[in-house]
Design a protein around this nucleic acid. Sequence first.
DNA 1: TAGTGGTCTAGACCACATA
DNA 2: ATGTGGTCTAGACCACTAC
Lengths: 259, 259
Amino acid sequence: MSSSLPPSTETPAAAPAPGPAFSPLYQQIKGLILQSLEAGEWRPGELIPSEMELAARFRVSQGTVRKAIDELAAENLVMRRQGKGTFVATHSAQQVQYRFLKLHPDTGDVQEEGRAQRRIIDCKRVRAPAEIARLLSLRSGDAVMQVRRVLAFVGTPTILEDIWLPGQAFKGLTAEQISAYQGPTYAMFEVEYGVRMVRAEEKIRAVLPDAEQAELLQVSTSTPLLSVERVAYTYNDVPMELRRGLYLTDTHHYRNALN
Amino acid sequence: MSSSLPPSTETPAAAPAPGPAFSPLYQQIKGLILQSLEAGEWRPGELIPSEMELAARFRVSQGTVRKAIDELAAENLVMRRQGKGTFVATHSAQQVQYRFLKLHPDTGDVQEEGRAQRRIIDCKRVRAPAEIARLLSLRSGDAVMQVRRVLAFVGTPTILEDIWLPGQAFKGLTAEQISAYQGPTYAMFEVEYGVRMVRAEEKIRAVLPDAEQAELLQVSTSTPLLSVERVAYTYNDVPMELRRGLYLTDTHHYRNALN
DNA sequence: TAGTGGTCTAGACCACATA
DNA sequence: ATGTGGTCTAGACCACTAC
């Protein structure tokens, strides 16, 4: 940030050196708000200060704060509600529950989705294999929590998931904790571990299950399945979860909107 | 639109009756610009009038036009370029070529993507079966153009596509025309048929190919493939293309960003 | 009634592109 | 030098929410 805040008499660093080093005022404000979100000054679901208050705090006009918040809202980091204020986004919010779940029933049926029946197969602390570590930006052998579970819709096993979480941040995670929690797992991560996932990337393939996977999903080893590898990130593009899912797509499909 | 343009003294309709019937001024302006885009007043790739000109035309402030254009830009309907102006988006633009193609090589290799070798298997005019007609909002038996082709990357057949297009809008489409055209097929649709696809929806499954499909992709019938059904829409949510693809995902994957 | 975000305007200056 | 979009400000009014 080289441009200074308005009433300040601060001088921009003499030689802006190599990088871009410039950014519009509203981007700088956005960065500051982001820092507060990251630091937990306002927690998921909480009201953040009004635009006027933030404008006063940062010594800029309301319009500048507004543009910063506009971008944060576009990235789903905060949620605006007219007449009430701006809230820190949360995976607990009804409107955005299961944001990252793109598997939908073929029948446009009502959200059976939240009603998934979960069966935890396994939940243990292990040393991260090289590939898992790489995807989570950890070192090989670092501790990670590993969870395996099956999600069933209307009694039919449909998703087999393996989840890896950094051991440090998710110390103490148990199968009981996961099964006990109602609602999205990502909401539990916010409440129990203070970790908020803000975006994710998925790589999708078609595969055949091995014998163990097939048995857990109660299908044959010649049933084609969707393989979905997801890396979920918290603030600052820090990866905090690796999830490998196998989706049965005979009664469901992965839905994607292209814009 | 019930709210009036500024200099007018018009009163909002007394009883707002049933519907919403209201929309902010900038939304109305957005709608007017959209109409011009739709009507072809400015064609894909062309410069649209400056914000000041549009403000004068519609008798609103530049800021209001700006907000309208902001939304159009966010929806990829126009593209802003500082210092130059605002352009009608086009699938020909280098930056957004193959926007709708989410299949990427596993090696983060340079865009081999455009370099796909295309082989047209078939291109004919047929009567739409019920399901195809439904997805294209046509009547069963209406004429549609049907294209089948194989895309190969570095010599390896990877995508088998069946494409259906409304016969009326795409009258005269030939295999030669498709193979002759360099660049995205969607760019050709703009140039040759004046049809611009603005968004699309995909449903993805894992499937096994039938004998014919397997042969065209040079794989066995037990090779799991990604089935991607895409409906592409032009302005006003009018469906203009149905595309069913089978993707070989041993060296490629479907990449998706979740926000 | 008071406070919030949402809309609209107007004017100033900046950064970029082109001639 | 000119014109474009990009940023920033300031002030006014509207619509929604809560008390």
